[in-house]
């Protein structure tokens, strides 16, 4: 089977992570999300909780500086370690699913890349976040906005392109339309078609 890399960008609360997990199961390939955090934690000696706080986080503009590709920001260095990790996995020929980490752009040169962006209606996202995190509606909305703002700044800083812009992804899909299960089914069909096209090349 040719290499398959599924990159899943997502809005917070859209179910992107669950979709990525299920796709990894259905295609029987490794999922890189939480794994990337433990990987960096092992390498740096920091706790996974500390890494989690700095994961997919933008740097503090006034507290960080970049010189010839080097940055003093721990957030930037953690991000770059994760980019290096997925780059090396991709170069090794491994097939995997990766959640976020600007992977749709960072792994663009690999022909086996299928890049997806999962979005959702705000009402549906609020409902989901209220259930999972046991929050009221107001807090859930603020939480979503805060998380998405963070992801957007992180993405745009590291790749200089707009997070969520449909032109960056092979497919952008609103998970609120079909629901998460049917969205996964639909994506599975799409990815199979892409994999088949790749095999026939």
């Amino acid at each position: 089977m040719a290499q398959l890399i599924i990159s899943v960008g997502r809005e917070f609360g859209s179910g992107g992570r669950v979709i990525a997990e299920e796709l990894a199961k259905r295609f029987n390939i490794q999922l890189y999300d939480r794994h990337l955090i433990t990987e960096i934690a092992n390498k740096t000696g920091m706790s996974p909780e500390e890494i989690e706080k700095l994961n997919e986080a933008p740097n503090s503009r006034l507290m960080s500086r970049r010189v010839r590709g080097f940055s003093n920001s721990i957030e930037d260095n953690i991000a770059e370690m994760q980019f290096d990790f997925i780059q090396k996995r991709a170069e090794s020929g491994e097939s995997f699913v990766v959640v976020g980490r600007c992977s749709e752009t960072k792994l663009k040169q690999f022909p086996g890349l299928v890049s997806l962006f999962i979005l959702g209606d705000m009402d549906a996202k609020i409902k989901r976040v209220m259930e999972i995190y046991e929050m009221n509606e107001h807090d859930a909305k603020s939480f979503i906005e805060k998380k998405d703002k963070k992801r957007k700044r992180y993405h745009n800083y590291h790749v200089g392109l707009h997070w969520g812009d449909s032109r960056l992804y092979d497919l952008s899909i609103n998970s609120s339309r079909l629901g998460i299960e049917k969205t996964i089914d639909y994506l599975e069909q799409y990815i199979k078609a892409r994999a088949a096209a790749l095999e026939n090349k």
């Binding site: 390498k43 740096t44 000696g45 920091m46 080097f70 003093n72 260095n77």
Partner: peptide, 13 residues
């Protein structure tokens, strides 16, 4: 910047 970055990339943030 370079020193702290080299340290961080090698696991010493």
């Amino acid at each position: 910047v370079v020193g702290t970055s080299v340290a961080a990339k090698n696991g010493y943030p």
